[in-house]
Design a protein around this nucleic acid. Structure first.
Lengths: 338, 338
DNA sequence: CTGAAAGCGCTAACAC
DNA sequence: GTGTTAGCGCTTTCAG
C-alpha cells in the first residue's frame, strides 16, 4: 500500500512552509505568483491531493449527507441527479446513506454521519419525530425534502402537493368521472407535515369545487404497506356495489398495485377504471404501465435543496422554504385518447 | 450550534487520562473494571460519541464506500441490502456514491472517497480500465462485483453468468423454441471481464448442446443504450423474415424494452415471442410485466462482498473470488402456463 | 494498570 | 509576503 503525498512533502519539494502550501490550496490571500507557481508544480509532480478528512478536523469536510428512506423508489434517483447537478463546480460532494429497516428510523444514519463530520444533510421525508428534528437542526445545517413544516430552523423543499392533487382530480372530472376515490395511507406520525395530507386536501377541494361532495371516498392503507396490502385494499374498494370509476392514488407505486388488482378483477383500464398517480417516478412512462401522474420536478427539488444547503453551511441562518410547481402528465391509464 | 463532548471532556469528568478513555473506547487491553465503569458512566452522562473523522486521521474511518454506476437499476438496492445485513453488528458503515454522467467514469468518485479516507470500496461493474484498477487495488482494499477478473489483487463477487444464460436458453428450448436470439450489447472496454460476455458464452453453449447451432443469432446495442435504441434494434430483429420466436436478453431493463416493442408490432406475448431477462430486478415480478428472469442472488452478492471487504481491511492479502448460483424464475413472459 | 507525550494531515492566528 | 506555532479529536508507543 503505497504512500500518499502530504502537505509536508509538497512544502519540502517546493522549498516553502506548510502554511504557504495550505494558502495556495485554499486560494487564501497573501501569496506571490512565483510561490504559487512553485507550489503548484510541486503538487503536480507529487500527484498531491489534500486529505479532506484531515482538513475536516479543523473545518469542513465538504461532504453533504443525503439521507434516503429507500433507493427502491424510482423517484429518488431524479432527486439525486438534481443534487449532483447543483454541486457541479463546487467543492462539495454528496454521499448517500440509505435506511434499511422500517423499525429503524433515520436517526442511526444521521448519527453515523455526524460522527463522520459531514457538513450538512439533505433528508428526504425521514421518519423522525419533530422534537428530534428541531433539536438536530440547531446543531447542523439541514434541508428537508417532502415535509411541510416551516417552524423549525431548517430549510424545506416541497412540491405544491395540494395543487398537484387538484390537477389530478380536475383531469379525471374532465374525463367525465364523478365517482372518484382517493387511495391514500395513514401517515405514521407528525401527520400534519406529511405530503399525503396536502394531497388529500387538494382532492377534497377539487371534488367540492365541482359539486362532487357526495362522491368523496377516501381509502387508506398504513404507512409502508406492501404490494399485497395495497391490493387487498384495492380489491375491497373495487368490489363495492357502487365502485369508483376513477381513482387518484397518493403515489405511483401504489397506483401500479391498484391497476394490477383492477386488471385481476377483470376491469378494463382505463374504460372501467381510470387511474392517476403522483411522483411520475422512473417507470411510470413504461409502455407496459403508461401511468398518468403528477410530476413534482424531482430534479429541481434536488438541485434547490443542494443549493440551499450550501448557503446554510456558508452562513445563512434564516430558514428558506421552496415550493415546486406540479405538472400533470396524461397517459393511457386515465384516458383512452392518450 | 451546541458543542459536542470530546474525549477530553470525558477524561476530565471521569478523572482519568485521555488515553484511558481511548482504551475503554477501543476495548484495549489493560484497563481495570472500576476505571472502565467510571469512564462509561462519564460517556453516558455527556452523551459522548467518538468522532470517527478524528479517529480516522490515525487509523480507520470504519466507513466503506459503495460505488454504484446508477441507482436507477432496481437490481442495486438488493445488493445494498445484502451489504447492510452483513455489516450489522460490526462497526463499519456503508456510504454510497453514485456515478452521474456516462462520460465520467468512477474515478472521480473513487478519488473523492479516497480523499475522505474511507477504508475500502465495494464497486459494482465500474467503467474503469484495468491498469487503473489494478494499481488502485494495491493502495486500498477493493471488492469488485460483476467483473470477471481474477488476476488483480482485489476480491471479486460474481454470478455464474455462463450457467445462468444456459439455464435461460435451456428453458426456452424446453418450451419448444428453436429460433432463439440473444439480445446483447457491445461492452465498452475490457470486454473479457464483462458479465455479458459470459452470458453470451452460455447462450452459445446451450444452443450448441441442443443442436441449434444454425439458429444462433446475436444482436448488439452499444453500452448505455437508451430505451429508444433498444427498441430500434428490437424492431429490426423482430421485423426480419425469419424472426426469432424467443429471445434471451442480457438484462431485464432491455428485456422490458424488447417486450414493449414486440407489443407495439402487434405480437402477442408469450405466444408470438417468449422473453427471458437477467438480474430479476425489482420490477420484473410486477403483474404488468411478469418477466421471466435469471436471479443472481443480489442479496448474497452484497453480503459476501461486504464480508470480504472487512476481511481485507483487517489484514487478508490473498485475493478471494466468490461465485453465486443463478436461479431461473419462470413467469408469464416465457410461458403460457405461468 | 495508568498516564504523558508525540503524531495523524491540515488550518489559522500571529509574528517576522 | 512568508514562516512559526498551536491546535482539531483521537490513537499509540513508551515510561512509570
Amino acid at each position: 500500500m503505497s504512500k500518499r503525498a502530504t502537505i509536508i512533502d509538497v512544502a519540502e519539494r517546493a522549498g516553502v512552509s506548510r502554511s504557504a502550501v495550505s494558502k495556495v490550496l485554499r486560494n487564501a490571500y497573501g501569496i506571490s505568483e512565483q510561490m504559487r507557481a512553485g507550489v503548484e508544480q510541486a503538487m503536480a509532480e507529487l500527484n498531491y491531493r489534500p486529505q479532506i478528512a484531515a482538513r475536516g478536523l479543523r473545518g469542513r469536510t465538504y461532504t453533504l449527507g443525503v439521507v434516503m428512506p429507500s433507493i427502491r423508489n424510482p423517484f429518488f434517483p431524479d432527486i439525486l441527479d438534481g443534487i449532483w447537478s447543483a454541486l457541479q463546480g463546487t467543492q462539495y460532494q454528496p454521499l448517500v446513506a440509505v435506511r434499511h429497516s422500517v423499525d429503524e428510523t433515520e436517526r442511526t444514519l444521521i448519527e453515523m454521519m455526524l460522527d463522520r463530520k459531514l457538513d450538512g444533510f439533505i433528508m428526504i421525508a425521514p421518519l423522525v419525530n419533530r422534537d428530534y428534528l428541531w433539536r438536530l437542526a440547531t446543531t447542523v445545517p439541514i434541508v428537508m425534502i417532502g415535509r411541510h413544516e416551516t417552524g423549525g430552523t431548517f430549510d424545506t423543499v416541497n412540491n405544491d402537493d395540494e395543487r398537484g392533487a387538484y390537477l389530478a382530480v380536475a383531469h379525471l372530472i374532465e374525463q367525465g368521472h364523478k365517482r372518484i376515490a382517493f387511495f391514500s395511507f395513514e401517515p405514521p406520525e407528525d401527520s400534519a407535515v406529511n405530503p399525503v395530507v396536502f394531497r388529500m386536501r387538494g382532492y377534497i377541494a377539487a371534488m367540492q369545487a365541482h359539486g362532487l361532495d357526495n362522491y368523496i371516498q377516501i381509502r387508506k392503507t398504513h404507512s409502508g404497506a406492501s404490494a399485497e396490502e395495497d391490493r387487498l385494499l384495492a380489491r375491497d374498494m373495487l368490489s363495492a356495489k357502487a365502485r369508483p370509476t376513477a381513482v387518484f392514488v397518493w403515489h405511483d407505486a401504489a397506483a401500479i398495485n391498484v391497476m394490477a388488482e383492477a386488471q385481476a378483477l377483470g376491469l378494463n383500464l382505463p374504460q372501467d377504471l381510470a387511474v392517476v398517480g403522483y411522483d411520475n417516478f422512473g417507470i411510470s412512462a413504461l409502455p407496459q404501465l403508461q401511468l398518468s401522474s403528477i410530476d413534482q420536478d424531482a430534479h429541481a427539488m434536488g438541485a434547490t435543496a443542494a443549493g440551499l444547503l450550501i448557503e446554510r453551511i456558508e452562513g445563512r441562518t434564516e430558514p428558506v422554504h421552496f415550493t415546486t410547481e406540479p405538472t400533470l402528465l396524461v397517459r393511457r391509464s386515465s384516458t383512452v385518447s392518450a
